[in-house]
Design a protein around this nucleic acid. Structure first.
Lengths: 197, 197
DNA sequence: CCCTAAACGGAAGTTTACTGTCACTTCGCG
DNA sequence: CGCGAAGTGACAGTAAACTTCCGTTTAGGG
């Protein structure tokens, strides 16, 4: 799922590194399957380790969730932002990245809920995504296709709004993202004027 | 806070009715203060009764939450819907009711989260709000101010979307409701073209 | 191949919330 | 005003999850 996270002081022993990765992977799937407040003992069980091993590696739920989130952002979110930055069409880049974010986050709602609960969204983590997002927004506004009274923070809120619609019907979020995009646009630059079903 | 809920078979004794109401009120405030998964013992403590009393009155968390929700809908939501139905301006009626719903629900997020968790949104309860809401939507579409590809269900989703923005900043939801309304409108019928700050 | 430090698993103690029992108290009818 | 039914609070047993301790195992350098 990920490289063993940087062994700053001293490399982890091979078995320890394996367990570290197994715990992260188990936590991610357990959060989806059992919800944000899954028992850490369940995570340990899925990883095939004893609870004490999990607690030795992570001080508690907060640290574990933060590590999983960091993992997810580095692996899924940042590449998406990088790809969008290379897109030459301002509207396409912005909608593409929002769509990608919502699609990804929708599949990891448990992780996100847990991260919210333990306060794992540090200012630094937010800044890592807000920088590129703000740049995409600025480009769209400069091109005159995105309304000028939107701020970078608003984009995270838009993603959040689209994601929660998955609680009503997990396959219908594109419809509601369309609705939001129509509100964000100047004129109606979307290809098709109708909301997706 | 509310009339003692209907004593179908036999009237509750005076002290029992008092406790019933006290528990409902305590549950409502406890859900806001301590979150959706507040301990029922904490609810009992706030109501000034023993846990056993709470459990005698309500079979468990599910029934308690359902009763609080029913209370809230009857007291806050339905009057709002009734008032909107009397409004002659189709756009104003629709935006007014959405604004009112978001405003109210935003102040009772704990209750709503708990209701979602225990599945207290019964089809009947949904129908009670979807009927009037659907009628408002139909009027707006007939008047040509609301896009035709919206369905009644979508309105509940819109409310949900606006409500979650309160998790970012509890006072900024009108801004995001504006954004949604701009996406829902045909043309831009909102009085001011700019999003609220 | 051996030895040491690192890592592990099992088990047990602790906390927190749920839920039922039972003897006592209070309401309100007659 | 007295009596029976309804209602109540204190208590305790249970379950689930958290967290730590300790004897044993294993990695990996010398």
């Amino acid at each position: 799922m990920s490289a063993p996270s940087d062994p700053v002081i001293r490399p982890l022993r091979a078995d320890a590194a394996r367990n570290h990765a197994a715990i992260l992977a188990a936590a991610r799937s357990a959060l989806e399957a059992d919800g944000a407040d899954v028992a850490l003992e369940e995570v340990a069980r899925r990883a095939g380790v004893a609870p004490s091993t999990l607690y030795r590696r992570f001080s508690g739920r907060d640290e574990l969730v933060a590590a999983v989130l960091e993992d997810y952002v580095a692996e899924s979110v940042e590449p998406l932002l990088a790809r969008a930055a290379a897109d030459e069409d301002p509207w396409g880049a912005l909608t593409g990245v929002l769509e990608g974010l919502v699609d990804g986050v929708t599949r990891h709602r448990g992780l996100l809920a847990a991260a919210k609960a333990v306060g794992a969204f540090t200012p630094e983590l937010a800044a890592r995504t807000l920088g590129p997002l703000g740049e995409l927004l600025r480009r769209g506004q400069a091109a005159g296709v995105v309304r000028g009274d939107l701020e970078p923070d608003d984009l995270l809120v838009v993603v959040h709004m689209a994601v929660v619609t998955a609680e009503h019907d997990s396959r219908r979020w594109p419809r509601y993202l369309d609705l939001l995009l129509d509100g964000m646009a100047v004129g109606r630059p979307r290809a098709a004027g109708d909301l997706r079903p």
